[in-house]
Write a protein that binds this DNA or RNA. Sequence first.
DNA 1: CCTCGTGCTTCAAAATTTGCAGCACAACAC
DNA 2: GTGTTGTGCTGCAAATTTTGAAGCACGAGG
Lengths: 313, 313
Amino acid sequence: MKHLQTLKLIDAVNKAGSIRKAAEDMHITSSALNRRILGFEEEFGAPIFERLHGGVRLNPAGELLIEHIRGQMADLERVRSQVADLSGLRRGHVSIACSQALQPYFMPAQIAAYRAEHPGVSFSVQVRDREAAEEGLRAFQSDLALVFEPVHLGDFDVLLSVEQPVFAVMAKDHPLIKKRDLRLRDCLGFPHVVPPKRIGIRFLLDLAVSRMSQKLEPIAEADSFEFMRHYVQQEQAVGFQFPIGLNLAGDDRLEFRPLPKSDVTYGNLTLMQMKGRTLSVASARFANQLAATLNDLAGAPDPLPRQQDLKRS
Amino acid sequence: MKHLQTLKLIDAVNKAGSIRKAAEDMHITSSALNRRILGFEEEFGAPIFERLHGGVRLNPAGELLIEHIRGQMADLERVRSQVADLSGLRRGHVSIACSQALQPYFMPAQIAAYRAEHPGVSFSVQVRDREAAEEGLRAFQSDLALVFEPVHLGDFDVLLSVEQPVFAVMAKDHPLIKKRDLRLRDCLGFPHVVPPKRIGIRFLLDLAVSRMSQKLEPIAEADSFEFMRHYVQQEQAVGFQFPIGLNLAGDDRLEFRPLPKSDVTYGNLTLMQMKGRTLSVASARFANQLAATLNDLAGAPDPLPRQQDLKRS
DNA sequence: CCTCGTGCTTCAAAATTTGCAGCACAACAC
DNA sequence: GTGTTGTGCTGCAAATTTTGAAGCACGAGG
């Protein structure tokens, strides 16, 4: 949109940290960009950037303005989406940030189910830890965030929140499989693989061991669940994952056992959006579908997400 | 602001109902305006106006857009106000719609008190009935609305709500003055003056008589409380008003008597803003002052707004 | 049939924006 | 010290965009 060009340029300068770099990014000359910024500052009535040796940086007024700019752009997109919807096009784009656990099974199935009904809608999925996901919401980079154990709940609207137990992940020949009612302390007796501290499941594990005499002594700390899945097949190690990230019924190499709530608090899988924001039609509908599916999941006796559950809208 | 020029023009066309008229209003030629609109529609991806014989009118997409435009303009003003505030200027503008009852004493005192501390802030006060006041909020014409008995509460954020009894207003020589514990049926025995249906106090009176055998038979229906005040001095008639619109202690021509809550429900004086909107610094502070004053009023045993109460910030 | 007011189009003039080149300045490397 | 490199900023002419004046086509109303 043309009338937002200056605002986009300001955003670019902010990101680049210097007018000349931003000019390159936006494919115009630095002089043109510089004068647009000077012109905008004049009609705005106050400087937006502070000039320092080696570049520019937003001043407090600029911070206020950039927030307005991002909100404005997002809101215009919402309007365009609504207009496209009422003209019957059913087009749109959904941008969602989610935890790693949702990447292998849940999100692909959900997106496929949604696109089966609305083929004009495209998606962008960012796998982010909970802190980064919230940052993405704040910067209007993501429309939705679906993460375990969100950090700053106050700044967002919570669309839904469901509990998921933590599962231990092992190879099929692991000794612990024979044990009934597996406890966390049993797992810690074996080599274990855990995610880094910024991941929700690690947060829950740290919380759990802080109440125990045993300590967490991971042989490997990896932010890739794929790594964990494969590593536990190499030696008799134990990994951890939420059931939504596991193929509970059909995995032919791994076994999964839930840990009791008294050992490890259940994780809160939370669907959030920026506080007060009105989402585009596509995003709002997709959020509704997610909420419905997750609600069914929570209501079912078996926490396994079956295929037919996922296909519901 | 230059980058909003096209949006302002669209707004003008919407108001004028024709491109040529709007062009005159905005002091440009119709051809230029016409092409800007066509250009905008093209980059927007959909027509905004429907062309009909004798002018143009917004189509549904345009309605969505105009709402976005008004929101953006108001939000930009908020940003500028905040920026002005943090650069120490303490400038700003407050636009408030209020019921007629607040016009003679309450609002002037409140505004004077606020301006005593912030001389850089200017005000615009629109006296509106409750329906029109809400419409003003929706169109971003007013920042705040302070009205009795709001109609559509769901669409707005309520900042504060206090109750006020309905008072009967009479001349000093009226027979009813001698009566202790004045009831509504006593008043209806005399000629009475009431406001039209869209005014909050009339709403309460209609509600009250619907539970009684007597009917409302006004000798005069007037939307001016001034008219009522003067008329009750002409013949032995009775008028009605909220105490906040009366000089309870010091009026030398009129007498006021409260009607019991069991007869006429107390009116809800409600301070509202558009849902989810962030107000400018000046508006938010003025709203705080109003809320504080009204809270004190409600807490005090005497519902009379004294001068020193009004002067508080 | 004519008149009036509408949205829209053509074309040259006016206004604005852009790119090029260069200036002054500050930080850093040698 | 002394270049070197990066920064923001500024004349000036070219390129681009926007504007205004006039006119066209259309439809409603007298």
